[in-house]
Nucleic acid binder design. Structure first.
Lengths: 334, 334
DNA sequence: TTGTAAGCGTTATCAC
DNA sequence: GTGATAACGCTTACAA
């Protein structure tokens, strides 16, 4: 490996001067600069980032922990994070937590001893009790539900309000028996419980009595949506709308409805949540909630960089909620 | 930041002993080990990875450059790469090239490259002429088309053969006017030209004369597929099958056909390529070619690690082609 | 079984 | 404008 001092020797200057040239410092004569760049090119020199990191005490890399990168939702998030990181001069190392609590805890625990300057973690399983798991001496931003009780910076989306908007939209279109795919009223607070709560509140406000059999618990995955439709119709439960708590789920539900010969939006209206790119291209295209991903990612970076510059152990936790918006498409238009 | 020597002082031993304990070396008495681990826990010590990297001359990180992580194809690939990397003790830093030649060259050339032990790059724009762009003293595996003329390790998929299989499948089902979405016979060799060539060869072999107007050039993106259908039908071109050169494109084509009131597989048969997860859940589900992604990723790692262990400048370039398989689903079943 | 010394490649400081 | 020196935190040899 070609080192800086080899370049220095070849150019007849000191290593320090080579460093100055590389880092674009002023006070280097054009003549010297030329000699050095020539030597760099000739020898094929590259800076050793490990050494630079050691000196600088930082790596220019942030970690991104997501449940599963091949979920469209995560992939789009990762795309935004990588792009935003690039704009701010950072690189992104991606880890997958497998949507398990263990995986998320692991990502938090490992992050400090990995080479990251900070970590953005998309939490889906961590709850209130896990607040102590978050490092206090290392910049972490949680992208997901609020981790109560800890000074954890976090960015969330308007789960309750978005679900309310969807519900009102469906009720306005005459739906009275809205099946909620992924719906759940118990268990750790998260996207599922918050969106369900938003739905139920809006339903009651509209004077529609919620029915237990219309809460269809299932995981947020395409295959689960298809299976859940099979099960629900198999059980003879009638419904005039399928409110899916994520778009991925909705894709599976569309599939499941097609399997049963039910048309959308003819027989059943269908909605999603997240506004993944695919939502505009399904057949029919999908009414959904755009949770303001771009703004969320920008906010996450603002928080992370603020901690990087002033890594206070104390300090109030920051919060941000994305600006959501109902996007109406064919699946609820008849 | 707590350093190793602070731990050593606290435990009443030398830094070397702390290092030995951390790295699980033998010849450390249980008593010493206990004292050291206690001190590590009490002080909250973490190894400084930058320093370790500097010493070791490697980082344990490999780079992954993909066109655009939020393309399902790339996302699934990234998921496999990250998982495989984890299994082999590596982390993955993801970069996006934006599917541009400049982006790909940049990923190869950047001095950031130096913080990776190796690079896996999914090339879509680099061609024969770019072989010299590939570093010779740094492990790189190209995932994509063959870069002729250079000693570039690469993993490719059976583009020609897979497209041939799809074509034969369609011809067997009676199709004679197969529109090829994304089809292209000229320009830099790549997935588009290779798959088109495979299609044309199989078509001729089956005694069907290719028609120029059925080659529908468009980029491999969902929105492009929908637009291309609009254009083709608008131009009054009739076709009984839509062979899409990627699944993402097929999703858009399904959408475009629905917009025109054409049913699948009733009026038109549709096929894709790549077998992304979504392909089983579109309505109708999509006949496609599974290119053996898992095997491709495993092969890419084998090549990369082989170069890491024996980074010869010379040495024959390695090659691997994924085991492809036609997956027949509803979109071609009637 | 443990400690000492040296150096990995870079850059901040400060002198020249 | 340029260069000598001294770290950054860790681990490989070798010595004890």
């Amino acid at each position: 490996m070609v080192t800086m001092s080899e370049v220095a020797k070849a150019a007849g200057v000191s290593a320090m001067t080579v460093s100055n040239v590389i880092n674009g410092h002023p006070y280097v004569s054009d003549e010297t600069r030329l000699k050095v760049t020539e030597a760099i090119g000739r020898l094929g020199y590259r800076v050793n980032v490990a050494a630079r990191n050691l000196r600088a005490g930082s790596t220019g890399v942030i970690g991104l922990a997501v449940p599963d990168i091949d979920q469209p939702y995560c992939a789009e998030l990762a795309g935004l994070v990588i792009a935003e990181a690039g704009r701010r001069g950072y690189q992104v190392a991606v880890e997958q937590t497998g949507a398990s609590r263990e995986g998320e805890i692991n990502a938090l625990a490992q992050s400090r001893l990995r080479m990251y300057d900070g970590l953005i973690i998309s939490t889906v399983r961590l709850g209130d009790a896990d607040a102590p798991t978050f490092p206090t001496d290392f910049p972490v931003v949680a992208l997901g539900e609020r981790i109560h009780g800890g000074a954890v910076d976090h960015v969330s989306m308007a789960n309750f309000e978005g679900a309310g908007d969807v519900t009102r939209h469906l009720v306005e279109r005459g739906c009275r028996r809205i099946a909620v795919f992924g719906g759940r009223t118990h268990g750790e607070e998260g996207a599922a419980t918050l969106r369900t709560a938003g739905h139920l509140a809006a339903l009651r406000e509209a004077g529609v009595e919620p029915r237990d059999e219309l809460l269809v618990p299932c995981v947020f995955a395409t295959e689960a949506g298809a299976a859940a439709v099979r099960q629900l119709t198999g059980a003879g439960v009638a419904f005039d709308a399928a409110m899916c708590l994520t778009d991925s789920l909705a894709v599976g539900v569309l599939r499941g409805l097609a399997d049963r010969g039910l048309t959308v939006p003819g027989d059943v209206l269908v909605t999603g949540f997240d506004d993944i790119g695919l939502a505009a291209y399904t057949v029919p295209s999908l009414t959904t909630v755009a949770p303001g991903h771009t703004e969320m990612v920008a906010a996450a970076f603002d928080m992370l960089l603020a901690r990087l510059l002033a890594p206070r152990r104390e300090g109030r936790a920051r919060e941000f909620t994305g600006p959501h918006r109902l996007v109406v498409r064919e699946s609820t238009t008849r």
